[in-house]
Each structure stands twice: as structure tokens, then as C-alpha cells.
Amino acid sequence: MSTARTSAFATAVTRTDTPSQPDLTSHCGRATPIPGCGVLGAATIIGETAGVHRFRSKAAFARFTGTAPIPVWSGNSSRVRLNRGGNRRLNSALHMIAVTQTRGVGPGKAYVERLMAEGKTRTEAVRLLPRRISDVVYRTLKRTDTTASQTSDHKMAMAA
């Protein structure tokens, strides 16, 4: 989905008096049950992904989103650094979901606290969270894509 289509969708969402969740669900299936993912974030994810079938694995999807951490070794410490590559709009949408989950909506807060208990700094823990969210988004989109293809196959069979 281009920026213009995302903006048009956001304008349509703003103009409607009724909740836009059912409208988004009719377009993109089950992308919004991810805690912390709003309507505009889901639209951005779906539009920028342009079909999850393009990615061979969740690791390839994470690389595309720029959430795959890059390992850095220095002496005895093993750390990861920020991946500056990937799709920045998609990375931004995943980051906003991570920030929302870190503040207590969804499993992100528990994940960050567990990593901090293991010795990571808060910055490192929050930096790792979008990768986990990317995996959840990939699974959700993959499930939705499979369901949509089965539905279209069924409709074609019924039409024949």
C-alpha cells in the first residue's frame, strides 16, 4: 500500500462515525488482534508487506522489516546493534506496537522485564522486542493469507 493509499485509508477511518475495525477486518483479515496494533498500524503493515507470500521465512520477513538484530562482539561481551536497513515505515509501525506493549498492553512488558532480569539493559531489551512482534505479525499474516486463499478457492469452486 502506498503512502497515498494509507493516507486515504486514514482519512476514511477518521470520517466514519462507526468503528473502523470491521472495515479493516474485511480488507486484511485478522491483523488487528495483535495487542498494541491499531487500525492505521495494521493498514501500514499490510500495505508495506504487499503479500506475506513473498517471504520464505519469519527471518526473511524480519530482515525486510529491519527488526533482525545485528550481532556485535567486542571482547567477552556479546551484544546486538540496531539494524538501520529494511523498510523504515514497517519498522516504525512495529516500533509503535513495541512501545505500546512495553507500557503494559500485551505481552511486551513481560518480555522486556524478563530480558532485563537476564542482564540486558532496557534499551537492548526494547530493541529486541520488535523482532518478536515481527514474528507474530508474520504468523498472523501467513494465517490470514492462507485463509484468504482457501476462501477464494472455495468461491471459485462454487462458481464453477
Rank of each mutant, 00 (worst) to 15 (best):
V112W: 02
G47K: 09
I70C: 02
F55P: 00
A43M: 01
S20N: 10
R56M: 12
G38Y: 10
T49Q: 12
P71V: 03
C37S: 03
A12P: 00
M116F: 04
L94W: 03
T11R: 15
I46A: 14
R132D: 00
A50W: 15
G85Q: 14
A110S: 14
H27C: 13
R127K: 09
G119F: 05
Q150W: 07
I46S: 08
T102M: 13
A157G: 10
G29S: 09
R79N: 06
L24M: 13
T3W: 15
A160Y: 08
N83H: 14
T147Q: 11
A31Q: 12
R131T: 00
R63E: 07
R103P: 02
R63G: 00
N91P: 04
I34W: 01
F61V: 01
P33H: 13
A31K: 03
A98C: 05
G75Q: 00
A125L: 05
E124K: 12
H27A: 15
E113F: 06
T140L: 08
K155D: 06
V72K: 09
A12K: 06
H53K: 11
K120L: 15
A157I: 08
L129D: 00
L90S: 06
H154M: 13
D17E: 12
Q101G: 02
R15C: 11
F55W: 06
R5T: 07
I97L: 05
G86Y: 11
G47L: 04
Q150P: 00
N83S: 12
P107D: 12
H53F: 15
Q21M: 11
S78N: 10
V137F: 06
G41N: 10
P19C: 11
E113V: 14
S134I: 06
A68H: 12
T121M: 01
D153K: 11
T144K: 04
T65H: 08
H95P: 01
Y138I: 04
V136D: 15
V52G: 09
T49K: 09
R114E: 14
